[in-house]
Amino acid sequence: MDKTQSRLRRARQTHIKIARQRVARLAVHRTNQHIYAQVFSPCGTRVVVGASTVEREVRQQLSEKSSKGGNIDAARLIGKRVAEKAKAAGIESVAFDRSGFRYHGRVKALADAARDAGLKF
């Protein structure tokens, strides 16, 4: 079993559990260079809001700090942006779906920033 299959295996049970709860889901995906966060509707079929380090405004803010999209500072920025967008869309509480990624580093920084911005997990 390779690394990707292990991650997807870990993610499968979380997806099932969140689907049973019928709550909005904050899903995180990370690559070596970028991090992505999306809030899905409670039925799980529609993306309500999203934020990533690929967005033009985010890239401009990161270039001012002379940092890239694949580090903890970028993850904090994305967590804050997705929380603000979710609150503007009327979503106060979500279930955190880390997509099988371990809860440390960039994934933890994104979750902490979203919590600090007022999103409840």
Results as ranks from 00 to 15, higher is better:
K3D: 15
K3F: 13
R7M: 15
R9F: 14
Q13Y: 10
H15S: 12
K17G: 08
I18E: 03
R20C: 07
Q21T: 06
R22P: 01
V23H: 07
R25F: 07
L26R: 02
A27I: 11
R30L: 04
R30A: 10
N32L: 14
H34N: 15
F40S: 06
S41L: 13
C43S: 06
G44V: 00
G44D: 02
R46I: 12
R46L: 13
V47Q: 08
V48E: 14
V48N: 05
S52A: 04
T53C: 09
T53A: 02
T53S: 14
T53R: 00
V58A: 12
V58D: 00
R59A: 14
R59C: 02
R59F: 03
R59T: 09
Q61K: 11
Q61V: 02
L62P: 00
L62T: 00
E64M: 10
K68T: 14
N71M: 04
D73Q: 13
L77M: 15
A83G: 01
E84V: 07
E84C: 09
K85A: 15
K85F: 03
K85P: 06
A88I: 03
A89V: 06
G90T: 12
S93I: 11
V94P: 01
R98P: 00
G100F: 05
A111W: 03
D116F: 08
D116C: 05
A117F: 10
G118E: 09
G118R: 04
L119C: 01
L119A: 00
